[in-house]
Design a protein around this nucleic acid. Structure first.
Lengths: 140, 140
DNA sequence: ACAAGAATTTGTAATTGTTATAATTTTGTT
DNA sequence: AACAAAATTATAACAATTACAAATTCTTGT
């Protein structure tokens, strides 16, 4: 993915681009695998040896605040991040801890909250067994 | 709430009652405020001075496994617990970090997952501003 | 182009939430 | 009462995150 694409996306969300921010954002855009801070840091450290983990934390905080990425808290151990901000749910497998994207029906009614709540975002989390682990458990 | 009520609830979920388990479960049943381990430990420590925080962790793990309470991961900092296992959503206020229960419409369609996923439970999380904090921000 | 100031990044240390482990206590069974 | 199994406890270890201050990089006015 080109720098230009990433920079435009950042700017569209009111974020001034920097080498580090571009790298983190690009990583998220190219890896829709719900990476953790650790994942991102480990992957980028090769290219940018001076990168600090604090910067990854700071950058992700900023990206989330500006609505450029989604924070996923389905795994209670670590926060995961997702550059795909479109309407979809997440499934966490209790056996292998993988997170899968789950499409939501188009016609599902939009959420209505009691008066005076200001809604910023909605997340739908499922827990259970992914197809692989469900099959594995059958054979036991 | 009587010991008997709590013991029956635990037994119904296949959990052998003990002083500590009853205390934790009762606390959750009487405080539907989504407490954290810390909250529960602090509250029970007065009555049971020998109580260990590890026991609170162990007990909650067991309660969740047996489906007696729900684990709430909407707040990325700490896991919260909820004895109300009925179908409802949670709203986290980004300003004051309070968690509110939100009723879901009765007629909402049940979730359909792709084939072969085994679903254990579903959580719906909203983030935004609670009525109090929304009002406060207006006045600024 | 350059100095001053603001913003960003960095490295380290501190903090917090949680888990591992092994010893101790309690419970249940003969 | 004696033994085994289960539960609890205390401590230490661990992992994720935040606080903080110094260093670096960017921006802007002259």
């Amino acid at each position: 993915m080109s720098d230009k694409t990433v920079i435009e996306y950042l700017s569209a969300h009111g974020i001034k681009p920097s080498v580090q921010r571009i790298a983190v954002m690009r990583y998220l855009m190219e890896h829709l695998t719900h990476p953790s801070v650790e994942d991102i840091y480990a992957a980028l450290h090769d290219d940018i040896p001076t990168l600090s983990k604090t910067t990854v934390y700071n950058t992700l905080k900023l990206l989330v605040e500006q609505g450029a990425v989604m924070m996923i808290t389905i795994d209670e151990r670590t926060t995961k991040y997702d550059a795909d901000c479109s309407r979809h749910a997440h499934f966490l497998c209790s056996a292998c801890n993988s997170i899968a994207d789950i499409a939501l029906p188009e016609d599902a009614p939009s959420h209505t909250l009691p008066r005076n709540f200001v809604l910023h975002n909605t997340q739908i989390y499922y827990r259970g067994l992914c197809p692989e682990c469900a099959a594995r458990q059958q054979n036991t």
